[in-house]
Design a binder for these strands. Structure first.
Lengths: 306, 306
DNA sequence: TAAGGTCATAAACTGATGTTATGGGTAACG
DNA sequence: CGTTACCCATAACATCAGTTTATGACCTTA
């Protein structure tokens, strides 16, 4: 985090077009075929792949008169490239929803965690089924979402939290779980049995600002264990909370959705908590009686199928 | 999956340089400050941010004579951008390791799942602590990894699977779990109680090719339930397996690491399995007696701290 | 009011990426 | 066998996004 790069990331990593081309080559099995599919000429594809190989210092594809297949290294690079492209697709889906605003046909309001981590994926899926549906997205806290849905400024809302706001019907679409996480160097990381609710309640934590859904659930869960201690840090964004915890400032509490990467890469370690219900439902909400129809129904069924 | 795009993704999403710039603006609080930090001039930063706002059709930053702060939409876009940049950093970490090859100081061999999903994150962390350590990476199956480590062609190996190959010491660094997943439209997705081991064993599944670690664990886990049925499809890559399952061809079985995105986006739904131990240990391995030292020890401690 | 910070605009330069136009390979088929 | 039809590589030229340099306008603070 925050170390000085002599040369910026963008000069060491091929751009999205090149990564997309590589994925297409892997899928199609030839440079010229991939070029056709992407609407460019074969020499352009050839030179771009070669430039990428030179930049990375690794041979990516085996060329033959019958086509091109990935080398072993190329297969690995392609998988990493796919991660980047999928993140870019999520970016695109979110950005398109944001651009829509007034003139779009499906207006969604969602709490921050859902808007950030889940909605882009759903929108990609929705675009797959209903390519013509234009979506707009507004992100805020639970109260804000409820207000917009009640005022018919949004066709469908998504909230996390314990209770459903007045005047709204809801459906549980998934379970989320709050996770206590610490840097690997923190003493709690070595505890095989985790911490008790009372100890968690008595510890100064790194938290989101008051008013966030996360904060409410945590408050409620620890009420019977003596209530939440004064926070160590109160930060405005999920990212700031994670960064503080990674640097070893103390334990943080966040949605598992927000912590997937950090936990997988072991920048943070989960600490089990005994005796506190840190699960919470993620709900879709709509005005009482007004069952979602049309595009809202499509999106809703995407999120809860199963 | 595979629908025709009129305009390629790369033209709808800002390139990595622009996304990095946006993140820096968010962190630093001014366009000119971000420009300085990235080694470009202020007009370049200004025009790039503006171009991004035009392309997305959304105002991202509030400009004032005292600096620039993110708008509400800008904060959301920045979070999506961060996902893309982090994926690009993982790409870079992996690619650098791949480029090193012979002349590097730390040679790592890892099974596919670990190389693909975990190692890039560890390498980023390692670079944070020991910026000068050059790493090379070879990916293969468990036997391949063992061979390289035994031949001292790799300083440290990572394998998934039930047993530790002969002649190697090991340390468990994490638990992985095999997950049975189906498309949301599949009948199993509606089962609240999941499937029994015997039913899973009797069902034709979408699997990786024989010889993969995943396949071995599954074989062993279902041995007592009658053994694995003939597969529905045997595919060469994790991605192909996922794609087939998403399209509804049938249930697939993969590491939870490989399924994080699909499950979060609900392109696939997890099916609980009763009575089969689908957990497996991820292990670091080294030649018996030769305790990892130097950079290998640094990397190892990164992965198992806690 | 002068100094130091912010951001915006204009004009010229640069390079990556694209094109068209070629040529050289392998394979399948009558 | 040639003919056809794929594949890939190279060369020369065109285009455009992103860059720098140069300048101006705005606000805050000493």
């Amino acid at each position: 985090m925050g170390n000085e790069e002599t040369v910026p990331l963008a000069h060491r990593v091929p751009d999205l077009g090149a990564l997309e081309l590589l994925l297409t080559v892997a899928r199609v099995g030839s440079l010229s075929g991939a070029a056709r599919r992407l609407g460019i000429t074969q020499p352009a594809a050839s030179s771009r792949i070669r430039a990428m190989e030179v930049r990375l210092g690794v041979a990516l594809v085996d060329r033959s008169p019958r086509g091109s297949t990935l080398t072993a290294e190329g297969a690995l690079v392609t998988d990493w490239a796919r991660q980047v492209v999928e993140a870019a697709e999520a970016f695109d889906a979110g950005a398109q929803a944001l651009r829509g605003r007034r003139d779009s046909r499906l207006r969604v309001a969602a709490s921050m965690t859902i808007a950030e981590y889940l909605l882009p994926g759903w929108l990609i899926a929705l675009r797959g089924e209903r390519p013509d549906t234009a979506v707009s997205l507004h992100a805020g806290n639970s109260a804000d979402v409820a207000k917009r849905v009640l005022a018919h400024e949004a066709d469908l809302g998504f909230v996390e939290g314990l209770s459903v706001p007045e005047g709204l019907d809801s459906a549980v679409i998934a379970q989320d779980r709050l996770v206590v996480a610490v840097a690997p160097t923190h003493p709690w990381a070595r505890r095989s049995k985790g911490v008790a609710a009372a100890e968690l309640a008595g510890t100064a934590l790194i938290l989101r600002e008051r008013g966030s859904g996360t904060r409410q659930v945590l408050d409620a869960a620890l009420a019977s264990a003596g209530g939440l201690a004064a926070p160590l840090l109160e930060l405005a964004s999920t990212t700031a909370v994670k960064a503080a915890a990674v640097s070893g400032a103390g334990p943080c509490v966040l949605s598992e959705l927000a912590l997937v990467d950090e936990l997988a890469a072991r920048r943070l370690v989960e600490v089990a908590v005994a005796g506190a219900p840190l699960a919470r439902a993620l709900r879709a909400v709509w005005p009482t009686g007004a069952r979602p129809a049309g595009p809202a129904r499509d999106l809703l069924s995407l999120t809860r199928r199963g």
